[in-house]
Amino acid sequence: MKKTIVIFILAAFGYFLAITFLAPEFESNRNRNGVKNVYLDKTVSELKTANTVTAIVVNFRGFDTLGEVTVLFLAATALGSILFKKRHHIGERTVMLPASSIVGSGAKLIFPAIILLGAYVFIHGHLTPGGGFQGGTIIATGFLLMLISYRDFSISHNILSVIESLAGILFVVFGLLGFMNGGTFLQNFMGTGVLNDLFSGGVIPIIYILVGFKVAAELTGLIYTILHEKG
């Protein structure tokens, strides 16, 4: 009985493997996926955005990005609530040794540079590789460095949640402004400007800056909760 099942599974696996290798390559049916050409043509000519990935993430499927941001927010909130409950149950903290003064002064020196890099990455999201999610993560690593260098470094959860909520609300507000001005949610209603300018691309840089703030606040709160769960 077992042997029959194994042979059956192997046969099915081999069948699908054969289909995969015998199927025509992607290059041969290039004409079928015309949506790729639409993205590539419209990004430069209509949106005046140098980074096609940013144009797709924020403009062509901006609604999905709103969903992604919501998923991240829910995950952070859920993890925070679980860890909060756990901490109350255990009720004791292990004392960790502080980092040495060399690490402390080095972290102080590098921290502004990391924040600057993160801000640069999400402000220039429409011109260079990177964007809101990446820049926010870089900023969160800067806060992680400070948190492991100084044990008493504290971040106010209220300020974090205010930043997070404001960024999320403004995202939706910009989407609704597009609704009023253009006709669809997250319509690019502002002037697109000149290609490769910092102020170009309409609402794309604004929304990516908001995403950057939101991701940075969320991940910083997450790191803070995890680090202070054990003490």
């Binding site: 040495s100 690490v103 080095g106 590098i110």
Partner: peptide, 10 residues
């Protein structure tokens, strides 16, 4: 020059 020695020290 700043980050590499500090990280190995840590």
């Amino acid at each position: 020059a700043i980050s590499n020695p500090i990280s190995s020290h840590a």
